[in-house]
């Protein structure tokens, strides 16, 4: 399998902070969408910043399209589209002028595509970016990211704070992008419902450590959450549990093969878990 992005044992610390990215490793197969989830401060943005060279990693390797990207590797950045949480464009500019800036920066800038995208998103290209709403800024950022014909999109909370209609529109754009099997997406999001719809894989990060990377369909259709009482809980082999969480009247146990678990322990209730619930167990639970 070829990978668009391979992160191997990435570590990163900041002076004066006890936050630490601890041997973060995961890869994105070419042609797929990777959802990146974890609570605030878990290390999603730091990981993405390290991938993009915005912060300097302490150790590990990061390969984009099979190569490590240094400051000089402009050709790689040419192929990577980025949307941050917030638009990050100079507020005094209008999108029309921003396009001129981008045309003077990206070799592959496709003005026609930019105009198509802004028209599709109903963006007024003559209005200053500073006067744009958050939703409009995000759509603009996406239009910019797609207009230099990237192969990898890195999206940090790109759908956060947007209404469901806009989000659906944006998800369509992502699926359109991924229609080309050379294209891949890394997207962090708090809105796991979005990821549940379109992601192929999900990576869970907690306190700077990767807890799990798994295919989304396996998470939803094969993983399960056992709802059990304390006496039932004692019967479960530790090796069969991925994580558990004690609640007031029941204990939730995450298992990675619902069918096998049901065969082995008859009579216990095993639910299908949502990404949110699986995250909760991986983050809050013990193992």
């Amino acid at each position: 399998m070829t990978y668009s992005l391979e992160i191997d044992n990435l570590t990163k610390t900041y002076p004066g902070s006890d936050f630490r990215l601890d041997n973060v490793s995961f890869s994105i197969p070419r042609g797929t969408i990777m959802g990146f989830v974890g609570e605030n401060g878990a290390g999603k943005t730091t990981t993405m910043n390290a991938v993009l060279n915005i912060v300097k990693k302490d150790g590990g390797t990061i390969k984009i399209f099979g190569r490590e990207m240094g400051d000089k590797d402009r050709d790689i950045r040419e192929q990577v589209g980025v949307v941050f949480d917030g638009a990050n464009f100079p507020e005094m500019l209008t999108p029309a002028r921003l396009a001129k800036v981008m045309a003077g920066t990206y070799k592959q800038w496709d003005q026609e595509r930019f105009l198509n995208m802004t028209a599709r998103f109903n963006l007024d290209t003559g209005k200053k970016i500073g006067r744009y709403s958050r939703g409009m800024k995000m759509k603009l950022a996406l239009a910019v990211a797609l207009s230099h014909r990237p192969k990898l999109l890195i999206l940090d909370e790109a759908t956060a704070g947007l209404d469901p209609i806009v989000r659906d529109e944006i998800l369509s754009v992502f699926l359109e992008f991924i229609e080309d099997e050379d294209h891949s997406i890394l997207m962090s999001s708090h809105i796991t419902g979005d990821l549940e719809k379109i992601a192929d894989y999900i990576t869970f990060i907690h306190r700077g450590q990767i807890r799990l990377t798994e295919s989304k369909d396996r998470l939803i259709y094969e993983y399960g959450i056992v709802r059990c009482k304390a006496e039932q809980f004692r019967l479960i082999d530790r090796a069969d549990m991925m994580a558990y969480r004690k609640r007031d009247y029941q204990i939730d146990v995450l298992v990675n093969n619902r069918a096998a678990f049901e065969r082995k322990y008859g009579g216990m209730v095993v639910d299908r878990g949502s990404i949110d619930e699986i995250m909760l167990l991986l983050v809050k639970g013990g193992d």
């Binding site: 993009l52 060279n53 050709d75 950045r77 980025v82 941050f84 990050n88 464009f89 920066t105 070799k107």
Partner: peptide, 9 residues
């Protein structure tokens, strides 16, 4: 921050 992601050194 965005500038760093552009294809410039």
């Amino acid at each position: 921050k965005f500038e760093i992601t552009l294809p410039v050194t």
